[in-house]
Design a protein around this nucleic acid. Structure first.
Length: 115
DNA sequence: AGGGTGACGATCA
DNA sequence: ATGATCGCCACCC
């Protein structure tokens, strides 16, 4: 064995997995996805993954503040798809307080609450 | 090995 | 609020 050659880099797989967990009718942001995947400063990489990996709910990932970053026609399509699944906009942005999906916090081995 | 890229994000004018 | 600029960082030639 040696170390299995992972076809995809771990960061891309982690990011894709996180995106797949955003439920219908909810959204997240590039930064939040990167962080949830374990790569805090990699918001930019999230957009690349959205481009490479087909089948992801790409429309559910927004820029900070709930703004659509995707330019052009796809940007309109993104908004259209989101509204179709119940996500409402307030002007040009989605009200994150109401629609942002909260990813479960990372488990801390051995950290008992309390005290 | 080196440099350009990007569906970002925070900050400043 | 809107637009420009700068900082980040892993990916991909």
């Amino acid at each position: 064995m040696t170390k299995k050659s992972a076809g995809q880099l771990p960061i891309s797989l982690a990011v894709a997995a996180v995106i797949r967990r955003i439920p219908r009718g909810k959204v997240s942001t590039y930064g939040a996805v990167a962080e949830a995947a374990g790569y805090p400063r990699n918001a930019r990489h999230v957009s690349k993954v959205l481009n490479q990996v087909p089948g992801l709910p790409w429309q559910r990932v927004l820029g900070s503040g709930g703004r659509i970053s995707l330019p052009g026609e796809y940007g309109f399509e993104q908004r259209f798809l989101l509204e179709a699944e119940g996500v409402r906009f307030r002007g040009r942005r989605v009200d994150l307080a109401a629609f942002e999906h909260k990813f479960p916090p990372p488990r801390r081995p051995r950290s008992s609450p309390r005290r």
